[in-house]
Computed example of a mutant assay.
Amino acid sequence: MFKIKNIKVSRATIVLSLLFLCSCSASFTYNNLTWLSSFWIDDYIDLTKQQNKQLKNIINTTQQWHRSTQLPRYKQDISNLKTLFNKQLDYQQLKAQVVLARAHFQNILEQAHIELAQLGFTLSYEQRAELIANIQAQINDEYEEFNELTAQERKSERLERQLDYYKQWLGNLTPVQTQLITQANNAHYDSSLLWHQYKQTRLNAAQQVLLNETLNEADFVKQLSHVITQREAYMSKELLANNEANLERYVNLLLKLNATLSEQQRERVNEEFDDLVNTLTDLIED
């Protein structure tokens, strides 16, 4: 059960890769990504007409590749999850499927990183500084928002989101299901500060490349491509360990919830899977 409903591609899926670093929460409708992204990009950097044309070409090319090669994979993933759901769920199989689904974002980075880095090389020093400054401002804002809440308030907000998420899939939750979700939420590692450190570390690495005027194009593209694609290289060992532990907790929660589902809830989940498959089919054929 991972959230692909309505197939809105988040900024942390395509537009993040297009601007190298940013992690955002708003969504763009898949079929209008090229048009909509231009509005958001203006918040980070003023591109010349030629650069904007180059970026739109990258988005179009990446989207065409994504539609023809990646959406069929997502569709297969959903079908595989539905099959697992309707059998006796196996921990290793379910975990492998979730890991596979989460790896799709990396595929986008691997596809587009060279062209993105080449675009980055065309930016003037002032444009590069503007991009860095705006991303830094966003990171700072996120840190301030984090500090506005206590640890308990953050955990409570996450629990509310979790309950809403599972209600979308299951409908009304039983007391046992609510308890399982609450217990999993209490055990979840809050890695917000570690994620903040990761974003800052990665931005610092990008800044070293972007503001280095001595690099030729080949070295610039190579070094910026590393920043774009090698995300885990900028994560601390603690963050990586927390991510793995939270993944295991998530899979275990799915297994426990599966054992509590009523027939009505099972039918609802299967309908959700079918809706996702149908939506993906429409997007592939569009």
Rank of each mutant, 00 (worst) to 15 (best):
I7V: 14
K199S: 14
N252P: 04
L119R: 00
S38G: 09
F28D: 04
F220E: 01
Y125R: 07
R128E: 06
L239H: 01
I41E: 13
N258K: 12
F273A: 07
N86D: 11
L210M: 08
R154A: 00
D141R: 14
T13C: 13
R231I: 10
Q265G: 04
E263D: 14
E217V: 13
S79A: 11
Y250M: 11
P72G: 11
Q54A: 01
D282W: 13
W40D: 06
Y44A: 05
E271N: 15
R73G: 03
N216P: 05
L210T: 02
T48R: 08
L94A: 05
N246P: 02
W35G: 03
I45Y: 12
A101S: 15
I78V: 13
Q93G: 09
K87E: 15
I284T: 01
S10N: 06
V251E: 04
L55T: 02
L149K: 10
L109N: 15
Q88A: 05
D43M: 10
E285L: 09
L119Y: 00
S262M: 10
L163Q: 07
A112T: 06
W169M: 11
A103S: 10
V15Q: 10
K49T: 13
Y189A: 07
E263V: 10
C22Y: 08
Y30C: 07
S25F: 04
S17T: 13
D42M: 02
S225M: 04
R73Q: 13
Q264W: 04
L21A: 09
A184P: 02
T178Y: 14
N57D: 09
R161M: 06
